[in-house]
Simulated assay, not measured.
Amino acid sequence: MSKANVPTQATRSSFYAGMRVLPKDEREAMYAVYDFCRIVDDIADDQHGERPARMADLDAWRVDLDALYAGRDPGRAAFLAAHVHRFALERADFEAVIDGMAMDVAQDIRWPSEAELDAYCDHVASAVGRLSVNIFGMDREPGVALAHHLGRALQLTNILRDIDEDAEIGRVYISAEALRLAGIEPTTPQAIAADPRMDKAARHMAARAHEHYRQAGLILAPKPKGHLIAPRLMEIAYARMLRRMEQVGWAPPRERVRSNKLGLLLTVLWLLVAG
């Protein structure tokens, strides 16, 4: 697939404004990484495709990445080539993203252990962060630490926002430990989502997310090197959304909390002024 045919999904992101303020090379690289993630995520979430075919499609992306990093024809990964070389994006991080998607394809994830959930969050979120911090120009050590904490915080927030949507497709990302703490017996995704004790289980996971936001904030507080408006925006906006979910609660029937686009724009402007 040529670069021109890759879906420009980045333009639909709530954080488009945050990416727009990046220099041109960094902005285009972030859009390319975003598009890669959307493409493989769509494979993982394709409810109409058979699992073996979807796994084969993910494996085909591994082959294209192999070719890209070996200097051969990268096939569908061609739109990543210039950015990989310019920003020294690591193949292992792209591979980790595919590994996370493969976890969803292999079987519907249901009440994973906290260790399994943490590994999943690393693959589908923190690995994206590791790619991003290279583009943002952060030093590698604080960048990897920021990706570790902010990626997990964002993914846990997404999980807590999407409990009902995930249950509809047979998935439960709420950890077994959180369910056990709330006294919920794992049965079916629909029964778990409808259990009034879900509020207690969700608040246990929200506390973990808050700790990751706190750690990310500590890394960002000294204003490390790099164009970091985008991760600062994500930290502020998603932490705000998590607090709103806590105010509403997770007892069914749940009200889906959404990000406020005007609030995001105002936050971008504030970050630009603050520097």
Rank of each mutant, 00 (worst) to 15 (best):
F79S: 00
F79E: 00
F79R: 00
L80V: 05
L80F: 01
A81S: 00
A82N: 07
A82T: 04
H83F: 03
V84C: 01
V84Y: 03
V84K: 06
H85L: 04
H85M: 00
H85A: 02
R86I: 04
R86D: 09
R86F: 01
F87R: 06
F87E: 07
A88L: 03
L89V: 01
L89R: 09
L89C: 05
L89S: 00
L89K: 04
L89N: 07
E90W: 01
E90C: 11
R91F: 04
R91H: 04
R91P: 03
R91C: 12
A92D: 14
A92H: 02
D93N: 13
F94L: 06
F94W: 05
F94C: 02
E95G: 01
E95V: 10
A96F: 07
A96C: 06
A96L: 02
V97I: 11
I98F: 07
I98V: 05
D99M: 04
D99K: 03
D99N: 07
G100M: 06
M101W: 05
M101G: 03
M101K: 05
A102D: 09
A102Q: 15
M103R: 12
M103F: 14
D104F: 03
D104K: 08
D104P: 04
D104N: 07
D104V: 15
V105M: 10
V105E: 14
A106G: 11
A106Y: 07
A106M: 10
Q107L: 13
Q107I: 12
D108H: 13
I109V: 11
I109T: 09
I109H: 11
R110K: 13
W111K: 08
P112W: 11
P112C: 11
P112F: 04
P112K: 08
S113I: 08
S113Q: 08
S113C: 08
E114W: 08
A115M: 03
A115V: 15
A115K: 11
A115S: 12
L117W: 14
L117T: 09
L117A: 11
D118M: 08
A119D: 15
Y120Q: 09
Y120C: 06
Y120K: 07
C121L: 14
C121S: 15
C121H: 08
D122H: 15
H123M: 15
H123P: 10
H123T: 09
H123D: 15
V124G: 05
V124C: 06
A125N: 12
A125E: 08
S126R: 03
S126E: 06
A127W: 08
A127G: 04
A127Y: 05
A127K: 02
V128C: 14
V128M: 13
V128H: 07
